[in-house]
């Protein structure tokens, strides 16, 4: 009984801690599928949040070839991320601080953010979409979207799957 009471007390304490810290946490996981192809290059991937008018409100990540013999040579293929390039990429200076990163191998990659980061400053209460776009040299291109409301009223995880260039994409907001 005493133990149970303690447990209850602890759980109250835990939940009150999270209540005191209302900063939302955003977790995005992107799975790059392992492909059985004769010539494989890691895909370029862009991850962003857009509003109902497809206006980009926050860039979360863009993975592309950051190094090379010539400076910025990897940026040549950024327009292959067609939607992201149109909606955001073409107006940015590359690399973008806190957004640009090297290409990643096949497997699951998790990105974690806190809601008080500057990139989310423009996100008013409303409906948004997480978009992940992948384009692979001598391969295909695919986009996966996950709609969500901001801020979240309770912790939720949503998962969508790509069919060719992307595996599972999931979004958790707590």
């Amino acid at each position: 009984m005493k133990q149970l009471f303690l447990l209850a007390l602890m759980s109250v304490a835990v939940s009150s801690v999270s209540a005191e810290d209302p900063t939302p946490r955003i977790e995005v996981s992107v799975t790059i599928p392992r492909l059985n192809v004769s010539e494989y290059h890691r895909p370029y991937v862009a991850v962003w949040i857009q509003d109902k008018n497809r206006k980009v409100v926050a860039n979360l990540a863009v993975w592309y070839q950051l190094t090379g013999r010539n400076k910025d040579e990897g940026t040549k293929w950024l327009p292959d991320l067609r939607q992201w390039w149109r909606r955001s990429g073409r107006s940015l200076e590359h690399p973008v601080d806190g957004v640009s990163g090297a290409t990643r191998p096949a497997g699951e990659h998790t990105l974690r953010f806190t809601g008080d980061e500057k990139r989310f400053a423009g996100m008013k209460r409303g409906d948004y979409e997480l978009v992940v776009e992948a384009a692979r040299e001598v391969g295909g291109r695919e986009m996966v979207q996950i709609p969500f409301s901001w801020p979240a009223t309770k912790t939720s995880t949503q998962t969508q799957s790509g069919e060719t260039e992307l595996g599972d994409v999931s979004l958790t907001i707590r």
């Binding site: 040549k76 327009p79 390039w85």
Partner: peptide, 8 residues
């Protein structure tokens, strides 16, 4: 028609 890069 739409390009990017160090020296497109």
């Amino acid at each position: 028609t739409q390009l990017s890069g160090a020296e497109p």
